[in-house]
Nucleic acid binder design. Structure first.
Lengths: 204, 204
DNA sequence: ACAAAAATCGACAGTGTGTCGATTAACGCC
DNA sequence: GGCGTTAATCGACACACTGTCGATTTTTGT
């Protein structure tokens, strides 16, 4: 269940348990406050450990957030199947959006941190978020070029740029939807799908 | 040249001058550091005043930023003429974007603060940014509905929602463009205009 | 059982914020 | 041109949060 870092040589338990405790504490705190407002003392108090113990496990608050996000990065990677399709594939797109929205909804506070620009000071975090976005953007750019070559999509905007624009609406809207009552989500996703298709395939 | 707040009864000069000094200092500092990294001591030092003097003029760093932004709010309001047109009016849209981009470029650090989500803790600032966005969104929503009634634009997405999506791409892209060399801007704005038109008028 | 490494602790030093009471400078008026 | 009132400035303080140290206690492998 361990064998994670090179820090502990054998499969210890006490430490990993504490680590999980900290992660949980932060998750819980994030439900009430914004990350910037959460203090180390809040965390240690919630986790029932002492200040110094925290620093034994993580070098800073940012590092905790990074860990929290890493777990999510994998989830998102699994919702990219639409990128593999050809043409509009509206249903596949919708499915992809449904998946992404539910990740957003389930991890609202954590996701919010990234676009609140928290951790602008902490390079690793910025890079990490960037990498996830880039993965989506390059994937989408490839799909767009494929579709254009097949005559399914109009030219007119550089494929990578366009993919970036799509990513921007997608993210902005998912963030909003995750804040809204679940009943309105279905419509919201339909609209978002329509918007994305217009961006890529729209003519006028 | 004064008569601003109710704080000073007569048209003093020393105070206003100092206030301007602080504003300038922050503007200058913002060119190097991010707002979160700028400290009050940085400001007072750059402005050549003492810590307490700063607090005489502004209650906090946020307040300075708010002031800086207010000045910009007016500028933006003047670039909304496209919203009054009917139909695509690509040229007018482009013009509007050119104007907005140049404001962005000239005030990059300040604008960046708002979308870095700095001041998430400071309600007035959040509200202010919101209000500016809302002005654009409601204006655009009205235009969209007008165009739809005239049969110039397809239905399918709630007008206000769509306006919000447009605002999202617009802002995201303007932010990026302001970071790029000026030579690439022209193309970038063409692409952005195309994307916006696709969102509003696109069919497929 | 016993050394080595993991984990915990209390106390400290640094940095940044915002506030207080007191002091100095500027104006308005007679 | 002095004199009260208000603007402006100052140094020092109290507070909150971060991150680090050296010392101490647990845990664990053999």
């Amino acid at each position: 269940m361990s064998d994670v870092g090179a820090r502990r040589r054998t499969g210890r338990s006490k430490g990993d348990e504490r680590e999980a405790l900290i992660l949980d504490a932060v998750r819980a705190l994030l439900a009430e406050k914004t990350m910037a407002a959460v203090t180390i003392d809040d965390i240690t108090q919630a986790a029932g450990i002492s200040r110094t113990s925290f620093y034994f496990y993580f070098p800073s608050k940012h590092a905790v957030l990074a860990r929290l996000m890493e777990e999510l990065g994998d989830s998102f990677a699994q919702t990219h199947d639409w990128l593999g399709t050809d043409g509009q594939s509206r249903d596949s797109l919708r499915e992809q959006l449904v998946g992404a929205e539910s990740i957003w909804r389930d991890n609202r506070p954590i996701m919010a941190c990234s676009l609140q620009g928290y951790g602008e000071t902490y390079e690793p975090l910025v890079e990490f978020v960037d990498r996830i976005q880039q993965r989506f953007i390059t994937g989408l750019a490839a799909k767009i070029e494929r579709d254009r070559a097949a005559g399914l999509a109009p030219a007119g905007i550089d494929a990578t740029t366009l993919a970036g624009l799509v990513e921007a609406v997608r993210e902005a809207r998912l963030a909003q939807l995750a804040e809204m009552p679940e009943a309105e989500v279905a419509d919201g996703l339909d609209e978002l799908a329509e918007a994305i298709l217009r961006l890529i395939y729209g003519r006028f």
